[in-house]
Nucleic acid binder design. Structure first.
Lengths: 206, 206
DNA sequence: GGCTGATCAATGATCGATCATAGTTCAGCT
DNA sequence: AGCTGAACTATGATCGATCATTGATCAGCC
């Protein structure tokens, strides 16, 4: 927040807006897996040129939401079981690293984590995942390693976790308790917090 | 290798070639940190248009070799000590994860690792880093997790490690012995191999 | 029928030109 | 001098058009 009490308004380019549109299309199912995404078709529909659409597609490729073949364009990915199985060990490993790095900053000072635990407890269905991830993000940020943060974000944590939970009907009820455990471990400077967080993340895995 | 005994020839687009040119420029010091990279200037020099240069710049941004500001273009990054300090914990964490995942495949069968150890031992100065990294890549691949592999590669392992070693005059002599240790640990199914590899990577850190 | 090569349509990759934004310069004012 | 804002410049962002690759279609041949 700045002196104007206004959020730092981000003047977002066309590419970013188009990326968000496509993400919404994919998560909502409006764009089906396997469906081709033709640059010029999207461009025409949105009344823009090919360039920003291309840019959006590159970003989606980085998030592994579409796959592209040289000279053959992009299509919505088929999300295989292997994709989900591969996702959680990587996420868990990153967060284990984060927890170990974050210990010095969080030890004894877990207020920033507890905020998210409370919000999560009060959250309605659709917001549970957002708040849960905010908790995890808090730890990753507390690690104070910008590269780690950036790699973690680049995994598309929220999208992939949501897709996985949706597909596998993953049970989320017990997770709040684990968040409390983790916060407690930070408070008590428990050196096993890394493994604790690792296992917690893996408990989402299919 | 296919029936023609020919390497799968990759027809690389302009963007990729330009990326490589710029990477060479940065690692060789021809492009100095802080120096602006003006899309149209590069495009003119190379006799291409702005588009593939832009694309190359996006890739360099992902490798954190340049930094871009919206509407203000790209410049060669100033590589700070913080950058190097942040790099190795992330790399080490990923490889620890890789080692743990790779254990089932490598246990008892470390021939693929030993190849790289031998090549490393015979390597001349400039090739040491390439062979050393090939050893690490072998482990990451053995993990059998394509996402992990892709995240690991996206860190720009070779470039960043090389830059760090060059800047800090990191001693590399003892590293071969550690590679042997790691291979041995895999052969013996030592569950501590993850930590071993982690610590080995961290030993490169400044 | 099944293979071969020519032709074609679709579309990604690239181009050259234009639009829009950020920083700079500088006259005009106090 | 120091501030203000208009005009200017450099350049990233976007556009519309063209080039080049890919896979499909189809006639010709065995």
């Amino acid at each position: 927040m700045n002196a104007l009490n206004a959020p730092a308004l981000v003047r977002t380019g066309l590419g970013d807006q188009i990326r968000q549109l496509l993400i919404d299309g994919i998560t909502s199912g409006r764009l089906q897996p396997g469906e081709r995404i033709v640059e010029r078709r999207i461009a025409t529909e949105l009344g823009v040129s090919q360039a920003p659409v291309r840019e959006a597609l590159r970003q989606l490729e980085a998030l592994r939401l579409v796959e592209t073949t040289p000279n053959r364009g992009a299509r919505v990915r088929e999300f295989t079981e292997a994709d989900f199985k591969e996702f959680f060990p990587v996420r868990a490993g990153l967060e284990e690293t984060a927890a170990n790095l974050a210990m010095p900053r969080l030890a004894g000072r877990v207020a920033s984590l507890e905020v998210h635990i409370e919000r999560l407890a009060a959250a309605a269905d659709a917001d549970v995942m957002r708040h849960s991830i905010a908790f995890h993000r808090e730890i990753v940020e507390a690690a104070g390693n910008r590269l780690l943060r950036s790699v973690w974000e680049s995994l598309g944590i929220e999208i992939w976790t949501t897709l996985s939970v949706r597909r596998h009907d993953t049970e989320l009820c017990g997770k709040t308790a684990e968040h409390i455990e983790i916060a407690t471990a930070f408070r008590d400077r428990d050196p096993a917090v890394g493994r604790l967080l690792h296992d917690h993340v893996m408990s989402y895995a299919p």
